[in-house]
Lab assay of single mutants.
Amino acid sequence: SDPSEDRAPESARVGNIPSSTSALKVPQLKVAESAQGPAAAHTTDTAGYNAMEESVSREKPELTASTERVNKRMSMVVSGLTPEEFMLVYKFARKHHITLTNLITEETTHVVMKTDAEFVCERTLKYFLGIAGGKWVVSYFWVTQSIKERKMLNEHDFEVRGDVVNGRNHQGPKRARESQDRKIFRGLEICCYGPFTNMPTDQLEWMVQLCGASVVKELSSFTLGTGVHPIVVVQPDAWTEDNGFHAIGQMCEAPVVTREWVLDSVALYQCQELDTYLIPQIPHSHY
């Protein structure tokens, strides 16, 4: 159930021909089969995070001529859309010479989310990475209204306002976009420790780096000194050995919190207090 199309920051360009055919990675995205229709094609874990990302398996898109002007500035990904909605975005992107990729990268400028009429969405990996990267996180209605009015409308009017977990109007995407000089995790050293489900560890690490944190791979690698705040992030329900995560405190002095601390902080683009996310640790033995 991992969102495989989000696994690594590679891009698939639509609308320009790469210098070599080997560089072309066409979105071959799968549809989750469901008797209840597209709305039930998501699996949500206890964290309220949509693990099964969206989309559609299609034939290789038709490439435009390399001489045609390509908008190098805009690059989009989509999240939560049905196959039909994805194809509408594809046509919109081609019309406006926008790069459409299946994986979010540093070059991505827009994340197009499936939302309700009030621009509230589910939480997906692309949603988190879009906010963390200060990108435009907009409703699919931006595409449909632009098509209806036959011009590209202003993104401000379609920015995602909230999500089904953290609140319907928290304005996290807007706050992140306007606060890239004040990253929420700066001054923190974060170790993403142990197993994680539904989200590859490297993507979680990239997320906290985008928010200004330094990533530490091992508990023994924390910088011990003033001005640096170490934090260990774990996902308790992913551990097979009972309560192993309670013993992390015996290996390092850092506070240990659940992954929800990261996800909530990123969604709201406000660093949350650790208290409600802390995992009790077995104290050091004193002999």
Rank of each mutant, 00 (worst) to 15 (best):
S146H: 00
E59V: 05
Y49Q: 11
S22N: 09
F86S: 05
D163F: 00
V138C: 10
M199T: 06
V14R: 14
L263S: 01
T43S: 08
F196S: 06
L268F: 10
Y49H: 06
M207G: 00
F141K: 03
Q281K: 11
E118H: 09
K183V: 14
W261T: 02
V257D: 01
L278T: 11
K91P: 10
L129S: 04
I184S: 00
S57C: 09
A254T: 15
W142L: 02
R69K: 10
E118A: 09
L100D: 00
R94L: 14
K183D: 06
V160Y: 00
H97V: 10
K183T: 04
F128S: 00
A8K: 06
Q36A: 13
E5H: 09
S34E: 14
C271V: 05
K60T: 07
K114F: 06
I190P: 00
R123W: 01
A93R: 04
R175A: 08
P255C: 08
G249L: 14
P283H: 13
D6E: 05
K91C: 06
I17V: 13
V215R: 10
K151T: 09
E107V: 01
A39G: 01
E10N: 07
A238R: 14
C121S: 08
F196V: 06
L81P: 03
I98R: 02
Y90D: 07
G130L: 00
F119R: 09
G37L: 11
P230S: 15
F158G: 00
E68T: 04
A254K: 10
V165H: 05
R69T: 14
E218A: 01
D181Y: 08
R186P: 15
P9H: 12
I98T: 05
V257L: 12
G133S: 09
R94Y: 15
V164N: 02
C191Q: 03
L278A: 13
E241I: 15
Q281C: 05
E178V: 04
H284A: 02
D45G: 10
E84A: 04
G167Q: 01
E54C: 09
R168E: 06
C191P: 00
I279K: 10
L274A: 12
V26S: 03
L24T: 11
V14Q: 08
F196N: 05
V266F: 00
E118L: 08
Q270P: 01
I184K: 00
M52E: 09
S55L: 05
A247Q: 15
L129H: 07
G172T: 08
M152C: 04
F86I: 05
W142P: 00
K30G: 13
C252F: 15
R259T: 02
F196T: 14
V256P: 13
E253T: 14
A8G: 13
T108N: 01
S285L: 13
E106D: 09
A40P: 08
S22T: 02
S57T: 05
I17Q: 05
P283L: 06
A12Q: 06
L224K: 03
G167V: 01
E33V: 11
V70S: 06
T115Y: 00
F141V: 04
V26K: 11
S1R: 10
H170A: 02
A51R: 08
H284L: 06
E253R: 02
L219M: 04
L278V: 15
